[in-house]
């Protein structure tokens, strides 16, 4: 099977972009990713997007997103109701199958329209859990308490992860938080969602992202340093949080094994950890040790453009490889309450 490379990436995350509607969020990233890919738009062989109707408050929100692509003449196109990292997975399959030589992948979401924490709580079991209205953060906070009680995570590790993210956010133009802060300073702040402090929770923001993929031959033609997807896999755990081992992330562990994360050292890892304890759990589940720079962008803890966050991790990891900052990088995306579903992607240059 042929290799698939990432040839361009664009993202748009900023609170001031709240004025845009979904189409207007998608237009600039698609235009930029296509332009930077060097592949004429008319030659892109497949398009796939990821979004969530419930963020927009009505059905078929992805339909308008298509207006931003310029789907004329008609295009081979698909959509996943998930973070666009899963759209990238679908596009990767299509290129691997030989049906297309290139693909445009994009994600978008406007969590500013509603209460995204409440909305994502409705991913929980609709019969016995959702009617109690736990939010996504409530479910994650419970998982954090279980991990702390089991001794696999402590509050200092969480504060260190949050502080590192906030410091990295200062250098990331797409971050919505950035702060020169230490773990000690964060630990002095109040616990707001026990055991989480505000800095332990990702700041949701409107945003979008786009990536262009190409098969090996084409990628080499259009790109001086294509970044190869050398492994990609995703797995899901049981939806019942009380039936899961919340001190581990089994589906991330098995996805990482399937993607081959452990086959060689990892220089950079970009993790879709929306809560600081998840950085610790995911490092362990992915087998990413102290030799790995985790979330040089700050990760989801400095900007969580829901439905694009995972795709942006892939884009950021690819950017690190392309820039020569990493020879081998890992990107991670997550979906569902308390890391129920996880996607892991390994990226390498030649």
């Amino acid at each position: 099977m042929r290799r698939v490379g990432i040839v361009s990436f664009a993202q748009l995350t900023s609170p001031r972009e709240r004025r845009r509607n979904e189409v207007e969020l998608v237009i600039p990233v698609v235009q930029e990713a296509v332009r930077a890919s060097g592949i004429p738009k008319a030659e892109i062989g497949f398009t796939c997007s990821g979004s969530c109707d419930y963020l927009a408050g009505g059905p078929f929100s992805f339909v308008a997103g298509l207006d931003a692509v310029g789907a004329w003449p008609p295009i081979p196109e698909s959509h996943v109701e998930a973070d666009a990292a899963w759209a990238l997975y679908e596009a990767w399959l299509v290129i691997r199958s030989g049906e297309a030589d290139s693909a445009l992948v994009y994600g978008f979401g406007k969590p500013s329209l509603g209460d995204v924490d409440e909305i994502l709580g409705l991913q929980a079991d609709p019969y016995t859990v959702a009617p109690l209205w736990p939010s996504a953060t409530d479910l994650a906070a419970m998982a954090a308490s279980a991990a702390i009680a089991a001794g696999v995570v402590d509050e200092r590790q969480m504060a260190e992860a949050a502080a590192a993210a906030r410091r990295a956010g200062l250098a990331n133009p797409h971050a919505v938080v950035g702060e020169d802060v230490t773990a000690e300073e964060l630990l002095a702040r109040p616990v707001t969602r026990p055991p989480l402090r505000d800095a332990d929770v990702a700041p949701v923001t409107d945003g979008s992202a786009a990536v262009v993929l190409a098969a090996e031959d084409l990628a080499r033609r259009v790109c001086d340093r294509p970044v190869w997807i050398t492994g990609i896999a995703h797995r899901i755990d049981t939806p019942s949080p009380g039936a899961r081992d919340l001190t581990d992330v089994a589906s991330a562990r098995s996805a990482a094994a399937a993607a081959g994360v452990g086959d060689a050292p990892v220089d950079v890892a970009e993790l879709s950890a929306r809560h600081s304890h998840e950085v610790v759990l995911l490092r362990r589940a992915l087998g990413v040790g102290s030799g790995t720079v985790v979330n040089p962008s700050g990760g989801a803890l400095v900007a969580d453009p829901v439905m694009s966050t995972g795709l942006i991790r892939i884009g950021e990891a690819a950017a690190a490889v392309r820039a020569g900052d990493a020879g081998r990088a890992v990107a991670h995306a997550a979906s569902g309450p308390a890391l129920q579903q996880n996607l892991v992607c390994v990226l390498e240059a030649d």
Partner: peptide, 27 residues
């Protein structure tokens, strides 16, 4: 919105025998 469950495939992972496997939702 038809069933009032956000990404209901997540809650169906047990019933679909998908635990530990890839599960992808198309819309």
């Amino acid at each position: 919105t038809f069933e009032g469950v956000v990404m209901p495939e997540l809650a169906l992972a047990d019933a679909l025998g998908a635990v530990g496997k890839p599960l992808l939702r198309v819309h």
